[in-house]
């Protein structure tokens, strides 16, 4: 190795050290803080916070939002990817661009748009009011906001994957006498299962962690319209730091698990090699 081709060993070590230090201070330290603060007052207080009824109801609402948003966007993702990746039609690129829109919208604006449609002063507000249906400041609003912010996650994973796979296998299945559903369940779905799972992991992680959009539509009614991240905020604003960090540590564990799953899936599908920026996170 000539001197000009690579840096001298000392420079390499210095640069590596500096890079790891930056990564450590900027990214790893905040995660460590969460756990340090969560257990600062001991394990018993930690359990107390987690077992509080308000926390449990926040967990419940978060799971509900995930339980609705992820399947909805999963079905949409498969349908959109089927139409976009396997067929050529006019306006195809525009459709792909439109699917990405939620990634470019501020979380706060994502919540605001549903207030404008369903809120008391919104388009459907008076009608909903007459029929005694609550969407804003209630669970349906939280679910809608969650659906919006995680909207493109599955579709974005599946579109490039299904494009690269082409239609040969599906066509072969049809020629051999399979009907549309048989082709889908026996050929298409097995082919996209890893990518699908990858999209679901990203979608779930974001749905559980969403804060801004949900905050705007929730109304912060304790024990009723709080998701886990909103509960963190409430505890924090009550100066119950240990409690806030205890709930935050739950979310952090989920985040770390989702990250590990994501890496595992990338390794499994060899997507890591193809590199490329996974812009899905651009929320």
């Amino acid at each position: 190795m000539t001197a000009a081709r690579s840096e001298p060993a000392a420079a390499r070590w210095a640069l590596t050290g500096l890079a790891l230090l930056t990564l450590g201070v900027l990214i790893v330290l905040p995660l460590c803080t969460v756990f340090a603060e969560a257990f600062a007052k001991g394990w018993s207080l930690y359990r107390e916070v987690i077992e509080e009824p308000d926390t449990l109801s926040a967990i419940e609402l978060s799971l509900l939002a995930v339980g609705v948003a992820v399947p909805m966007n999963l079905i949409f993702g498969v349908a959109a990817a089927w139409a976009v990746a396997k067929f050529q039609f006019r306006g195809r690129n525009i459709l792909v661009t439109l699917i990405d829109i939620p990634l470019g919208v501020s979380p706060v604006v994502s919540g605001l748009i549903y207030v404008l449609v369903f809120g008391a002063q919104g388009w459907l507000g008076p009608w909903l009011n007459r029929h005694d249906i609550r969407i804003i400041f209630a669970a349906p609003g939280i679910i809608l906001a969650t659906v919006f912010v995680t909207f493109p996650f599955v579709a974005r994973e599946l579109i490039p994957l299904m494009e690269s796979q082409g239609a040969d296998e599906e066509e072969a299945a049809l020629v051999l006498g399979a009907n549309g559903w048989q082709m889908f369940w026996k050929v298409t779905l097995p082919n996209i299962s890893w990518g699908l799972l990858y999209g679901v992991v990203l979608c779930t992680a974001r749905a559980l962690g969403e804060f801004g959009a949900v905050s705007v539509v929730s109304g912060h009614i304790r024990g009723q319209t709080n998701t886990l991240p909103l509960h963190v905020e409430i505890l924090y604003n009550d100066y119950n730091y240990a409690g806030a960090f205890a709930v935050a540590s739950l979310l952090s564990v989920i985040a770390v698990i989702s990250l590990a799953l994501k890496k595992l899936l990338e390794w499994k599908t060899g997507q890591a090699e193809s590199g490329g920026l996974r812009r899905t996170e651009t929320g």
Binding site: P30, V34, A205, L208, G209, G212, P229, S252
Partner: peptide
């Protein structure tokens, strides 16, 4: 590197 993508923003905020 991907941790900021995965960590809920409110958690990052208080941390």
């Amino acid at each position: 590197v991907d941790l900021p993508f995965a960590l809920p923003t409110a958690v990052a905020g208080i941390a």
